[in-house]
Design a binder for these strands. Structure first.
Lengths: 264, 264
DNA sequence: TTGATGGAGATGTCAGACATCTATCGTCGG
DNA sequence: CCGACGATAGATGTCTGACATCTCCATCAA
């Protein structure tokens, strides 16, 4: 067999790190990674479901459940009586259906992510921010202000707001300096949530708007006044449905191209 | 029972009009419509799967398959051992994950859709258009140019390109005047595809870009020069994976707000 | 040459059983 | 009185095996 799956080492999907998600979700995640890494080529055919079942050591119904997830997300296409195929243009990290962070987005474009003008502070939430995060106005939030760079070019200006009440480890408050140090090293807020706070982001709801750069934004992003900007304001939701973070991101128009898979 | 589903008349999902899609997809579509219409309220709990199974007259596995589709699309949320719930903020027609047309988008916002400056013509495809539609440069396409209005306000400038070879009914060419008459009456390209050409659009892949209005666009949309515009260039794909249409739409910035559900 | 036909192989659907998780409520001990 | 614990009901998750249906393709007959 020249099937890519056959040459992959067997990865146990019943590991200890995944206790929170279902088997089917893990199957989907595993196959999705193989697609996004390019191991499974676009337009190629997957093994049939019984073979996938034995390979992944789960039942056929679980395989089918995972495949349904991938199909709905646009990664694969199933043709009754024929087979299951990787999509011709499967989603990538610049797809709005996938909740990837700026760091991953930059890295997947082949550039080196970085940042300048990093600011972190605690402040009372404005009415707008409190509304998005289901807080009371005045509740404290931790605010991050960053200018993100790709190969040292300024491409994104991002504002992140996280309820201060979340920064706790067994009751003890986590100092902002620790958060700062973590972000300087890892750059990703998402991994901090998972590894340090033990919280999983389930999904995000993003609002997309076109903007023209006013003076402040033009200076931050080093672009001419009036340049086009894509604004994505996103609320990240946890497993229990509660808002975990609000991120307000401003993308230089020609730095990235965003796509969306729209199902009928 | 005060369950909304119980008071719904039974809708046979094995009808003749749906021969092309699977049972699970029809289940998902039916429940999705109930959610988007507001019959099933946000945050409310669905009946359990065995009850849904008997109500919809399909097996529990088919119900589960349909629910998986809805879950992945952000309409519902399942909690193991607890139940299935309508999402707090389920997707609406202004969601980029859903392939709704401009007409439906305007109507769902509570406004009356219309258009001015309607143009239809056949012309050879440019290199760009041919590439998107998997044609050879020079192949004929039907081009639609429309300024769409919401309550008589100009909100979208849209360009649609469809391979001329698709406009056939049992071998006979469909005259452009008929297409024109249909669009004047129904305004929707999607229904024309389904009802007149017998073709189903399976999904679309959209590219989202922020723009500043240059002179031509500013005139068409009656907005100041340099105003922000959201450009969505979308390729609609049929059930067999072939491109059916290319639509290039320019949205006045403050006319609509687009959202996207981003799953992790 | 062409149309019908049948088989192989794939996904789709069904049925029933069991596994596992969650919330709740009672019981028991402090 | 109150908290910890366990039983239990009820929900979703997983497994198994069977059958249905669709597609493609090779074969065969007109």
């Amino acid at each position: 067999m020249d099937n890519p799956l056959k040459s992959q080492p067997y990865v146990p999907i019943n590991g200890d790190d995944y206790d929170n998600s279902s088997l089917a979700q893990r199957v989907a995640e595993q196959l999705r990674n193989l697609i996004m890494e390019g191991t499974l080529a676009p337009d190629s055919q997957l093994p049939n479901e019984p073979d996938l079942s034995t390979f992944l050591r789960v039942s056929r119904s679980t395989v089918r459940s995972g495949l349904t997830i991938l199909e709905q997300a646009g990664f694969i296409q199933r043709r009754w009586g024929v087979g299951t195929f990787i999509s011709k243009n499967p989603p990538t990290y610049n797809n709005l259906n996938i909740n990837s962070g700026v760091t991953q987005l930059i890295r997947s474009s082949g550039a080196e992510p970085g940042f300048v003008e990093f600011l972190i502070s605690a402040r009372p939430a404005s009415e707008h921010i409190a509304g998005r995060l289901s807080l009371e106005p005045g509740d404290e939030v931790v605010a991050l202000e960053r200018v993100r760079t790709a190969n040292d070019r300024r491409v994104v200006f991002s504002l992140d707001y996280i309820p201060k009440a979340l920064f706790r480890d067994q009751g003890a408050e986590i100092p902002l300096t620790e958060v700062e140090n973590y972000l300087v090293e890892h750059q990703s807020m998402y991994t901090f949530f998972r590894e340090r706070l033990g919280m999983e982001i389930h999904h995000g709801i993003a609002r997309i708007r076109p903007l023209a750069a006013e003076a402040y934004m033009a200076e931050k992003l080093a672009i001419p006044y009036g340049s086009s900007i894509l604004n994505i304001e996103q609320v990240d939701i946890g497993n229990d449905g509660e808002p975990l973070a609000l991120s307000d991101e401003y993308y230089v128009a020609d730095a990235f191209t965003f796509y969306s898979y729209r199902s009928n």
